[in-house]
Amino acid sequence: MAQTHEDLVVDLKSVSKHFGGQVILDAVDLQIRRGEFVVLLGASGSGKTTLLRMLSSLDHANSGEVRVTDSSTVVFQEPRLAPFHRVWRNVLMGLKGDQRNKAKALAALDEVGLAEKAFSWPKRLSGGEAQRVALARALVRTPRLLLADEPFAALDALTRIRMQWLVQALWREHTPAVLLVTHDVEEAVLLADRILILKEGRLAVDIQVEVQRPRRAGEAFAQLTEYLLGELGVSKEGDPLNSAVPHRPGSPAVSSQAVA
């Protein structure tokens, strides 16, 4: 695949990172193209957050070359709203001049279905609503790259499914590249163009997902899920308590969220 320079929103060349003697990233190469939906999986402590923080320039590599589009924004696991600013002001946080436009904030809130909460205080929002505000705050910046670190991890199962569909719809509408970190293999299979698994400091898996959208449970879906779980060190026969990936008891490998 010939990739011109303008095509890339992320370009990592041989990037390494260690904390003390512990090597977290070991000469990682990663390129993400415009509009690509990439999901990053990996066991707890494998360095996903570290990689994402590096891409959002909250952290620095020890060696290697990190190049990221300057039009990037982040959604964290927690909404991180300022409690003393009303919702719409949180959406505009940090914007200046023309960018600081109330109508734009209201439009973004409308897109995530929260138009009527624009003037609420963040404390009055539910967890899912607060996370949608965080999404609107990212959206209003019209980013070319959206970085998201387990954005749905703290939400209940139903809200999580809604959020996954919302993110997918917003991604289709605005076509930013997305790098989404998750522990949820089904989420990865549902959303990703491309799935990465970070293991022992390297991107051990880097596959394209060819399953047709909108995705529904099916043979291809199940196979892919099982393959990824295998790569993460979880086999179906394995003891879920010893596995690296949290296993939701009682849920089959392909859960209902793919059917929704």
Binding site: T73, V74, F84, M93
Partner: peptide, 27 residues
């Protein structure tokens, strides 16, 4: 610190960060 970190990321620096985030937090 998480709020400050993200506010910085969204473009608040220096005196604007102090006035819009730090002082209201410490109110």
């Amino acid at each position: 610190p998480k709020l400050v970190e993200s506010a910085r990321l969204f473009g608040l620096r220096g005196i604007r960060l102090v006035i819009q985030i730090v002082l209201p937090s410490a109110l």
